[in-house]
Write a protein that binds this DNA or RNA. Structure first.
Length: 291
DNA sequence: AATCGACTCAACCGCCGGCAG
DNA sequence: GCTGCCGGCGGTTGAGTCGAT
């Protein structure tokens, strides 16, 4: 099924009688075969990666260097992680994308084993799909805020569910978590955060105060779980809090998701939306009021 | 069983910056 | 400074898959 193309050498000398094999070279395109994969793996295992054009020739692959590089980095490299993105990884992608935009390779550096291609595909197929369904531009502020206030809490909750399966459900989960301070924050600001459930000034909301935190691949998950707010549950609702960074201090914002909403929404399954339309429009209304 | 549309993701393309000659 | 090559990046495509009808 894979196709190939014939490329003419740039040296198009009609008087040259040397064999056409020297003038024409076949360059394969399309899906890689097992044999090609083996060639590439074997060559890299003995010679290392890099110098991709030379590598392609020396390995006997009728592929461009670019193609070899892509195949190796996105598929064959031993530490590539397979399978669905975990809630933690999704959360990290949302967070990092809010900071860096479509800098996929940069984002991928913070997700060990995940490739920029995979993250890019995730964004296009999952995140942008949500925006399309909501008829909102995925780059719009509205959508970004919707992600922060609807999607992220759900991922957080999923993470909590996964990590605390052995913990009693009703346990209060770090209502006011330790918030690592950045260099330019006064210790007292940590205590200034008020538990203001009515503060919906999302314009000031940051991604759970992560903006000033250094994140590296080894501790980014911890940073997220430590700083991304809090989740606790009373009889009726899940309360999802987040810290709001204002010029001088942090305040604390909390929104509630009713248990039935959580139960009803299949927000973490691949087949469903991550939030339902009602929630989005409620959120949108709330936002409009506060603008 | 056949068809169709939606979705996924591997692979390609074009552009850009760095670097050597 | 100019040119060509190469590697890296982000955007896009399209074959394959899956579920609904």
């Amino acid at each position: 099924m894979s196709k190939s193309i014939l490329l003419m050498s740039n040296n198009n000398n009609n008087n040259n009688n040397s064999s056409n094999e020297d003038e024409l070279f076949e360059l394969r395109r399309g899906p890689w075969t097992l044999e090609e994969d083996n060639l590439l793996i074997h060559y890299i295992s003995t010679h290392g990666e890099g110098r991709w054009n030379a590598l392609a020739k020396c390995a006997g692959l009728k592929r461009t260097g670019k193609s070899c590089r892509l195949r190796w980095l996105n598929y064959l490299k031993p530490d590539i992680k397979r399978g669905n993105l975990t809630p933690q990884e999704q959360l990290l992608i949302l967070e990092l994308h809010s900071k860096w935009g479509n800098r996929w390779s940069k984002i991928a550096q913070h997700l060990p084993g995940r490739t920029d291609n995979e993250i890019k595909n995730y964004w296009r197929t999952r995140v942008q799909k949500q925006a399309r369904q909501l008829k909102v531009d995925s780059n719009s502020k509205k959508f970004v805020e919707a992600i922060k206030n609807l999607w992220v809490p759900r991922l957080l909750e999923k993470m909590e569910q996964c990590s605390s399966s052995s913990i009693e459900k009703k346990q209060n989960l770090s209502v006011l978590p330790n918030l690592p301070l950045t260099n330019n924050q006064e210790p007292s600001t940590k205590q200034n955060k008020s538990h203001d459930t009515n503060n919906n000034n999302v314009n000031n909301t940051t991604w759970a105060s992560l903006e000033n935190l250094r994140i590296n691949s080894s501790d980014s998950m911890n940073v997220l779980t430590e700083n991304f707010n809090s989740i606790h549950q009373d009889d009726e609702c899940y309360h999802v809090g987040s810290f709001i960074q204002q010029p001088e201090h942090f305040t604390y914002q909390e929104m509630s998701i009713s248990e039935c909403e959580v139960a009803e929404a299949n927000w973490f399954t691949d087949e469903g939306s991550l939030w339902n339309m009602d929630e989005f429009w409620q959120f949108k209304k709330l936002e409009d009021v506060n603008i």
